[in-house]
Design a protein around this nucleic acid. Structure first.
Lengths: 200, 200
DNA sequence: TGCATTTCTGCACTGAGTGCGGAAAAGTTC
DNA sequence: GAACTTTTCCGCACTCAGTGCAGAAATGCA
C-alpha cells in the first residue's frame, strides 16, 4: 500500500469520523458538507472525490457486504438448497462485514428511521445488493432457478428481514444495546424464513 | 367542489402533463422545475405548493394505492387467511388504483430503472405503503399476527413481487406494450406466491 | 533532481428547495 | 356589488448539494 493510498484511506476515515461526530451533535440536515470537509481538513470540493453524496458517508462499506454474500454463495456445499445458501450468505454478510455495533452503526439506524434522504439511500443500496446477490444465486443454480425466480427468492428474504427488523428497531429501547439488535436480527430472519421451512 | 379546488386540480394535472412531456422529450435530469412550472403557467415558487419535489411528479397518486389496499383488508371475509387477504389487497391495489398503462406509467417505469433519484423515491414510497399495509393487517388479525410478523409477511410478498417484476421489466421490449406489462405483473405475482402454495 | 501522474482545491456555476412578505384571487357577509 | 377575510400565488433573496474546469500541490518514478 503506497503512501498515497494510506493517506487517502486516512482522509476517508477522518471524513466518516467527522461526519459521525457532527451528525450526532447537530443533526444530519443541520450539518453541511463544507463543515465536514473542514473538520477533516480538506477542501469542500475535495469531499466529492471521496464520497458521491452526503448520505454515502453513512454507508462507507456498502460493497463489502455484497462481497461477503457472494463469496458465501461461491463456497456452497454440493447438497445445499438455494434457500439454505441464501440464508447462510445473508447471515454471513451481517456477521462478517463489520460494524453492526459501532457508533456509526447506531447513528445509521437512527438516521435511516428519521431522515428521508438517508432512508432513500439505504433502500437503494439494499436494492442493488439484492440484485447482485440474486444474479449470483441464479448463476449458482442454473438448472433450478431462472433470473426471475432467483430475484423473487432473494426479494422475499430481504424484504421480510428488512421489514421485520425495522419494525423491531422502531422501539428506541431495543436500539440501545447491540445484543438486542443481534437478537432482533435473529428473530427477524426466522420470521422471514418460516414459509420456506418444512411444514407440519 | 369549489372553484378553488377545481382550479387547483387542473393546475396539478397540468404540471404532471407538462412534466411527462418534458421528461419524455429532453430527459429527466435535463428538465428543470422552472421549465415545468413555466409550461404549466405557474410561478416556479408555486410548484412547491403542489409537489414537494421533482420526483413526486411521477407518483401523483401514491396514496390511492394504499387506500385501496387498506379498504380491501377491511372488507375481508370471516374465514380468510392473512396471506390470502394480503394477496387480494395487493392485487386490488394494482388493478383498481389507476394507470398501469398510460404514458405516465410507462415513463415512470423507465425512469425508475434509469434515474437513481427516481428509484430512491419509488422505493421509499413503496416502503411507506408496505408499513401502512402491515399495520392494518396486524390490526385485522390481532390474535394471529404481531407487528413484526405482519411486517415480515408483507415485506416478503412485496419484496418478492417487486424483485420479480423489476427483473422482468428489465427487458425494454416488455416495457414497450401494456399487455406485456400486465402479463409480467401477473407472472411476477405467481412467482412471488409460489412458496406459499402447496408443494409436490 | 527532473519529470509524469495523480490528487487537491478555489472559483464560478446550476439547480433544488425554503422563508418571507406583499399581491392577487376566491370565498363570505351584508 | 362593496367590504372584508382567508387562501393561494409568486417574486426575491437565500442556503446548500453537486459539477466542470483549470491551476497548484503532492506523490511516484527514473
Amino acid at each position: 500500500m503506497s503512501l498515497r493510498d494510506r493517506k487517502r484511506a486516512r482522509t476517508r476515515q477522518a471524513l466518516v469520523d467527522a461526519a459521525v461526530d457532527l451528525f450526532g451533535r447537530q443533526g444530519y440536515e443541520a450539518t453541511t458538507i463544507a463543515e465536514i470537509a473542514a473538520a477533516a481538513d480538506i477542501g469542500t470540493r475535495t469531499f466529492f472525490s471521496y464520497f458521491p453524496s452526503k448520505e454515502d458517508l453513512l454507508f462507507p462499506e456498502a460493497d463489502r457486504r455484497v462481497r461477503v454474500a457472494v463469496d458465501a454463495i461461491a463456497g456452497r456445499s454440493p447438497g445445499e438448497e438455494p434457500a439454505e445458501v441464501l440464508l447462510r450468505a445473508l447471515r454471513q454478510a451481517n456477521d462478517e462485514s463489520g460494524d453492526m455495533t459501532g457508533p456509526l452503526a447506531a447513528l445509521r439506524i437512527r438516521l435511516t428511521m428519521e431522515v428521508p434522504a438517508v432512508r432513500g439511500r439505504s433502500l437503494q443500496l439494499q436494492w442493488e445488493s439484492q440484485r447482485e446477490i440474486a444474479r449470483h444465486l441464479a448463476a449458482a443454480y442454473p438448472d433450478r432457478l431462472d433470473e426471475v425466480s432467483a430475484a423473487a427468492l432473494v426479494g422475499a428474504f430481504v424484504g421480510a428481514a428488512t421489514a421485520a427488523l425495522t419494525t423491531l428497531l422502531e422501539d428506541p429501547r431495543r436500539r440501545a444495546d447491540p445484543a438486542a439488535i443481534r437478537a432482533s436480527l435473529q428473530q427477524a430472519t426466522e420470521v422471514a424464513l418460516r414459509p420456506w421451512t418444512p411444514r407440519p
